[in-house]
Nucleic acid binder design. Structure first.
Lengths: 192, 192, 192, 192
DNA sequence: TATGAATGAGGTTTCATTCAT
DNA sequence: CATGAATGAAACCTCATTCAT
């Protein structure tokens, strides 16, 4: 069941990230101590410091690895014509990305307060901002701007909140959330 | 500027709650220490413990005082016929309540991870669940259920997220969010 | 069941002593806080300070009230001829005194470490010393001196330790302990 | 005089136990703070927590190391025939054990109240109970049972109490106490 | 006769971090 | 590549005590 020392060799860095993300998502960043991470890995705290300079750096490295898809997505969308179809595709791909890195996104949603004080907080906020910029029409009425933000939030909510509350098929929920989100930006686009 | 000890007499409890909520909302629950709260009030830590048994109790007391409007709202809605107009009114009043207790709701949104480990976490979740129950049609298709959840999230987002990102009039944003939310449940209601 | 405020009037001092002794005996002096005493009495901590200057003073006052019988006993024995019969009577009366103030003596036995740092510690020790002096022959062999000390300890042990371990009649145990103690000093006396 | 950091390496755990026991015995468990222990060792409080999980654990570890002789003694006696000679030998060896671990046994005697609330309290009590069981005849009259308990208490008293009161040779006192104890169980045995 | 409000000192414990080996 | 030992800062909390009312 638990891996032998041999198997562990060489991928400790990765394993630290995995366990850390799991615990961060489960308990929050502040409540998760390095002791706890180390214990789960059956390693000493000092070992963590061989691989990462600080606790924050562990989190940063996780972000770097897992948010690349989103950055690439934003880059891609920046080069497309700003049509409704582009926006729909953007939402579709974003939904996929959320699904792949669901643990991290759950972490982001539930630890906004912690994030704000951390160096990546700024980046996270900027990324969100860029997403909104790509979805909305520059001088649309406020209502339509809200619809764009709402579309994004719906995808997030569709992923996390619903999971907690609904018993049902989570894949179905995800598709439903995507449909509502697409609806929202469609309305926002038409009326612009 | 800073009040004298005489002025403070008798309302210390209230002042603790105020300062605590302010700091909790600003920095998060875990990152806010009792030392910090005490310092801001120019009181010793022990004074906090005269008024509240634990740090968590400070938070609980804040919740008790500030979430009553929502509980009353839920109670009210429970007694109304489940018509579309009731739902619209529910959202309107909810939006008002969010506005009044905005600091606390910002705190709730940004500290979900902390809340989950706290005794009130359960209550918060239950309240959210009840709100959703009041909005959605019992056996509506998943898409429409998502729309209901989305309506709520839109109000929240309308209040906090937009404030951070938009320079503009926050009252206008709030009204726009309410409009979008009402739209969403209207769609969900019709198709049911 | 719980007394009314009216009933409490005027004997608060006494009630403090009672509750304090009960808690001191049960949990030890250090582990018992004034908060706890006050709570049991449904009074504030400040009320305790109206009746006693310090925590230690509460204990001292309890000693003053409850150890008088022993002091009188020692005074009495000092005036008697130092015969075997006197010693026997001394043990008998001592056993009675232990029984009457059993809570305090249990406290003394179980909190020797605390007592040593307290001002009464010295007094307690002196009293014990005087008791031994009254029992033993001035230049008896060491063995007989031990027997005298042992006789006293037997009475103590007979009262507390046995109560914990034996299911049986505690009055019977007390009588047995007295018999053994009398035996011991009888031996010590003869051989002198 | 005071050892250099280099000399300390590797035996810190032991040194903590030594200093802790010394202070616990001198001042009592509750009155001894970790700050005090740390200061004596010229180490930080956190260092204590590297070696022991809690304050109580320090005490537990001391017990584990120092009460083994008694446990072995009890085990040994359990396998012997329950003759008078076995009982005498048991007392002799018990007296030796008390002497070796005198600091701990003084602690136990003077901090019964503290011990009762601690997890080891139960163990201590059980051990005492087992000793008594080994000494007494199953259905001897109460008086003889008291004599057995008294024999044990005499050994304890012979070690601690006498030291405080007598100026004289403590080794002589110990031998005298053993003699009285042996006398007591001899009487208890014959009359059975 | 008591209370309400507060204090200052100190308690145990935990944390992120360091560094020689 | 990792550990063992330690630190300094700070966390939450409790205590005996005081004093104006």
């Amino acid at each position: 069941m638990s891996s032998t020392p041999q198997q562990r060799r060489g991928n400790t860095r990765q394993r630290i990230q995995d366990v850390a993300l799991e615990l961060f998502a489960e308990q929050g960043y502040e409540k998760t101590s390095l002791r706890e991470i180390a214990e789960r890995l059956e390693v000493t705290k000092a070992a963590l410091y061989y691989h990462f300079k600080t606790k924050e750096e562990i989190l940063i490295s996780i972000f770097e690895d897992l948010t690349r898809p989103i950055d690439e997505l934003i880059a891609w969308a920046g080069e497309q014509p700003r049509t409704l179809e582009t926006k729909r595709e953007l939402l579709r791909r974003y939904s996929d990305a959320l699904c792949t890195g669901s643990q991290l996104y759950r972490f982001m949603q539930e630890n906004q307060a912690s994030l704000r004080e951390l160096s990546i907080g700024e980046t996270v906020k900027r990324r969100m901002f860029e997403m909104v910029e790509l979805l909305r029409q520059p001088d649309a009425p406020t209502v339509d701007q809200v619809r764009c933000v709402s579309a994004l939030f719906t995808l997030h909510a569709g992923m996390m909140f619903m999971q907690h509350i609904e018993k049902g098929d989570s894949e179905e929920t995800r598709r439903a959330a995507l449909e509502v989100a697409v609806d929202l930006i469609t309305q926002a686009h038409h009326q612009a």
